[in-house]
């Protein structure tokens, strides 16, 4: 564990970053020795400053790795059931998977009134994947980072949805689908008309309408991503703060907070799913 609490928190909130450091960059190792890079290099960041200096050309290896792992877990589990799906008496696992699928399908049918074979699988993927990524938060905050530390990895932050990149990646996908289906269903003309002539159907109001509609459009993915990120990040910070307390009162706060997350984790996954369905439903509505 790092020395003082501030370092500890900062340490736990830094991702394992692999990225490109520019030419001439001055690196500092633990002992304070400085080395100057002779050319731009792709490397693992040794501290938060380096990670920040890498700019956009960097990957959060931990976020990506864990989200891929959770996504593959989802695909593997559901594919396993799908392959052996029987219309006779289902087994326990099939029963469970079917209840999830039925739940998502019901929500989609209630909310989405167009006809689109993509929406329901999309909603299922979002719900289960986000749920799995969120549920990594139930692991004790120090467990995985200390294992990673033992393996020589300085930073490790396992919850991909507590990383704004992770949630923005998802909502960007949703955003692209919104744009795609808006244009596909309404046509470019219809979509443009929607952007420029609502809510005030008058040529004079076009700039105002455009501003309003584009703002509304851009708010969708942003709010989607930031809501999930905010909830998960805040929860994570609280877990880290609790971990700073003396060990004999940790469980007294940790346990209720973890129990509270039984509500928060599925709820956030559900909200992300429902809002995605609603946004896509709006994209399909022709005025």
């Amino acid at each position: 564990m790092a020395g003082n609490s501030q370092e500890y928190i900062a340490h736990h909130l830094t991702n394992l970053t692999f990225g490109k450091l520019p030419e001439g960059y001055v690196r500092q190792d633990h002992d304070g020795n400085e080395t100057v890079l002779t050319e731009s290099t792709w490397t693992m960041a040794h501290n938060g400053q380096e990670a920040a200096d890498m700019g956009f050309m960097a990957f959060h290896v931990d976020s990506l790795g864990w989200s891929l792992a959770m996504g593959i877990l989802f695909c593997w589990l559901f594919r396993k059931v799908a392959k052996s799906a029987t219309s006779d008496q289902p087994g326990k696992l099939q029963n469970f998977v079917e209840s999830v699928v039925g739940f998502v399908d019901g929500t989609v049918k209630e909310t989405f009134h167009g006809r689109n074979p993509l929406v329901a699988p999309l909603a299922l993927t979002i719900f289960v994947w986000v749920f799995l990524m969120n549920s990594l938060k139930w692991l004790p905050v120090d467990l995985v980072p200390s294992i990673a530390h033992a393996m020589g990895l300085e930073y490790f932050k396992i919850v991909p949805t507590a990383d704004p990149n992770g949630t923005l990646g998802l909502s960007l996908g949703v955003f692209l689908l919104i744009i795609y289906y808006s244009i596909k269903v309404k046509g470019i003309g219809g979509f443009t008309k929607e952007l420029t002539l609502t809510p005030f159907n008058h040529p004079i109001a076009i700039p105002f309408n455009l501003f309003l509609e584009v703002l509304g459009l851009l708010t969708k993915p942003l709010s989607l991503a930031l809501r999930l990120f905010g909830n998960m990040y805040a929860g994570e910070v609280v877990f880290i703060l609790i971990a700073l307390l003396p060990f004999y009162i940790q469980w007294g706060l940790n346990v209720p907070w973890a129990i509270f997350h039984i509500l928060v984790i599925p709820l956030q996954a559900f909200i992300f799913m429902v809002l995605t369905i609603v946004y896509l439903s709006q994209a399909h509505e022709d005025h």
Binding site: S63, P164, N165
Partner: peptide
């Protein structure tokens, strides 16, 4: 909280 290529990675995985 750095924004970087992770977004794209996540998008592709999604």
């Amino acid at each position: 909280m750095n924004m970087n290529l992770t977004i794209l990675g996540q998008l592709i995985a999604f």
